[in-house]
Design a binder for these strands. Structure first.
Length: 555
RNA sequence: UGCCCGAUAGUAUAAUGGUAGUACGACAGAUUUUGGUUCUGUUUGUCUUGGUUCGAAUCCAGGUCGGGCAACCA
């Protein structure tokens, strides 16, 4: 018997319901409103919904909760579908709340007929005032006791466009004194004379979330309707509509939404960043959106693993973004091709390597793979580019890289011994001199020398150029939303560093969008899908490698 | 000052009345032609006060702290 992880609370509920015979098959749904792009919090919900159905042999629908035409658009519908698919999920049925407008209208009429709904002429402000406060009961609207006939004819008139926006609403007749504000005669329908992205101008009245969601679940025979904690107080209303209508009893269960350190997760805040051009768009690689993470180089598997690892509970939480980074490194380490790129180049001149000489060395593609994933050609010569930070004139303790007198292995090439360096007038090091040890050639080393450090390098003659973008966290504080004042004032001014001319090895000219690389000692990178065009290469850094030296050097 | 929900290492998450475990992090060591990977070890926790019980993270009561609820948003 294999080791089983313990069940999360949703799985326990499902297993109990299945065992009790409450449902023969479980059916879930992912119900986004098409008014923005999906973010990693949605990924948690997607993994939960699809994961649950998958685990218990059930089905999951994709349903667009498009009951408010003011904010919704097909652009969002398309991006949401693409993101869900990219994550690796395929829905059973695709639905839209707007497909149920006729049915929902009929449900509303039936509630009017049962004396459980009425047309109210009060203004939005009046309704709000008369609802009372959490500590004071509300007051009845003077229109609360209209006759069924009058309500029917007014509601029909509403539907037919006889009134303007805001003039009338349809309300459920429940309890103005309820301690739950959502039960104080909630609004079922409002008038909005605006074009809907799917139903066009067919309707001018639109159902509220509460009057659409539970019924949509019910129509689709959703057994477990999973949503975030803030809908908890809606549950009595969800159940009330279903009970009064006598329809399939879907059940709502709530979990805590995902929060991540050093970013924001609410659609409203993300939208602000986009609108105020503080980021490059919804798919800016610094955004916690699915499209941003994709462009940054995150893989579907790493995101799914992340969602699995964070678990699910009903308590507020904030996940360390380090866990997300761990998940993507874990995946990429096994799959990314190793390449050498010098981000901040200085020359390394091998004084005992003949000027006219050159050779082709072999570099392994990925030591984690069988047969090292094959090999690619690495041109080598007398002059190389190395990382400026890999040389120090005066080496600190435990410095394994280049410094006068130090020996270092050039990855997949030779061991070199540093013999000197050149400086310009300002004191800046412009080139480093060394001598190579011919018997130390990679793979056939007979020198017997043990170099402690290994460095990446590029042949100066054969090097190509590329733009490289280094990303850092978008915010400087762990939880921007909980800080005083405007969350935007906590943004990290250095979240994007652009390196115009990094030196790349020739094999990278063939890089394809979506391909992942590990630039040895520098991190994981991917080709930017938007900015790389017309022969210009732009690489995004997905995440750095773990860096033990930076910790050591800070001691 | 109403109603609802929650509280386990730094962060998450298990233990479902019977040994407080796991992951990420941190720290130390081994291996390493990436200061990466891998491996080993160490570290830190049941909000509080009572009660029930042979036995409580778990059940009960009070308190404290945190979150949610008064959109013609979802």
């Amino acid at each position: 018997m294999s080791e089983e992880r313990s069940l999360n609370f949703l799985e326990e509920i499902v297993e109990a319901d299945l065992a009790a015979g409450k449902h023969v098959e479980i059916h879930t749904r992912f119900p986004p409103e098409p008014n923005g792009y999906l973010h990693i919090g949605h990924a948690k919900s997607i993994c939960l919904n699809f994961g649950l159905a998958d685990k218990y042999g059930g089905k999951t629908n994709l349903r667009f909760d498009d009951t408010n035409p003011v904010t919704e658009d097909t652009e969002y519908v398309d991006s949401i579908k693409a993101d869900v698919r990219w994550l690796g999920f395929d829905w059973e049925e695709e639905h839209y709340a707007s497909d149920y407008f006729d049915q929902l209208y009929a449900y509303a009429v039936s509630l009017i007929n049962k004396g459980l709904a009425y047309v109210d002429d009060l203004s939005a402000e009046e309704i709000a005032t008369m609802k009372g406060t959490p500590t004071e009961p509300g007051k009845e609207s003077p229109f609360r006791n209209r006759s069924i006939e009058e309500n029917l004819s007014l509601f029909t008139a509403m539907k037919n466009g006889a009134f303007n926006d805001g003039e009338k609403v349809l309300r459920a007749k429940i309890d103005l004194a309820s301690p739950n504000m959502h039960m104080r005669d909630p609004i079922m329908y409002r008038i909005k004379k605006i074009h809907h992205h799917r139903t066009g101008d067919t309707w001018c009245i639109y159902p509220m979330y509460d009057f659409a969601h539970g019924q949509s679940d019910s129509i689709e025979n959703i057994s477990h309707s999973i949503c975030t904690l803030e809908f908890e107080v809606h549950k009595p209303l969800y159940n009330w509509y279903i009970a009064q209508l006598g329809i399939f009893p879907s059940n709502q269960f709530e979990f805590a939404r995902l929060n991540l350190t050093y970013t924001v997760m609410s659609k409203r805040k993300l939208l602000q960043l986009v609108q105020e051009k503080l980021v490059d768009g919804w798919d800016d690689p610094r955004m916690p959106t699915i499209s941003g993470l994709r462009r940054r180089g995150y893989t579907p598997l790493s995101l799914r693993n992340f969602c699995e690892r964070i678990g699910v509970q009903r308590r507020e939480n904030i996940i360390d973004v380090g866990l997300l980074e761990f998940c993507v490194r874990e995946d990429l380490n096994k799959t990314a091709l190793r390449r050498m790129v010098v981000l901040d180049p200085i020359k390394l001149i091998i004084t005992n390597y003949p000027e006219e000489q050159s050779e082709i060395l072999k570099g392994e593609n990925n030591p984690e793979l069988e047969d090292n994933g094959g090999y690619r050609d690495l041109p080598f010569g007398r002059e190389l580019w190395i990382e400026a930070e890999d040389f120090m004139e005066e080496a600190p303790k435990k410095w394994f890289r280049l410094a006068p007198g130090n020996k270092v292995r050039l990855k997949s090439a030779y061991i070199v011994s540093c013999t000197g360096f050149e400086k310009d007038a300002s004191g800046k090091v412009t080139a480093v001199h060394c001598e190579y040890i011919p018997e130390s050639k990679s793979g056939q080393d007979t020198s017997g020398i043990n170099a402690k450090g290994t460095m990446h390098w590029i042949s100066a003659e054969k090097a190509e150029n590329a733009e490289v973008r280094l990303y850092d966290r978008l915010f400087q504080v762990e939880d921007p939303s909980s800080e005083e004042g405007d969350f935007k004032s906590y943004m990290n001014p250095n979240s994007l560093e652009i390196i115009q001319e990094a030196k790349i090895e020739p094999s990278l000219l063939e890089a394809q969008p979506g391909e992942q690389f590990q630039f040895i000692r520098k991190g994981y990178f991917t080709l930017d899908s938007k900015l790389s065009a017309g022969g210009k290469l732009v690489f995004n850094r997905t995440v750095t490698l773990k860096d033990a030296w930076s910790k050591e050097s800070k001691k």
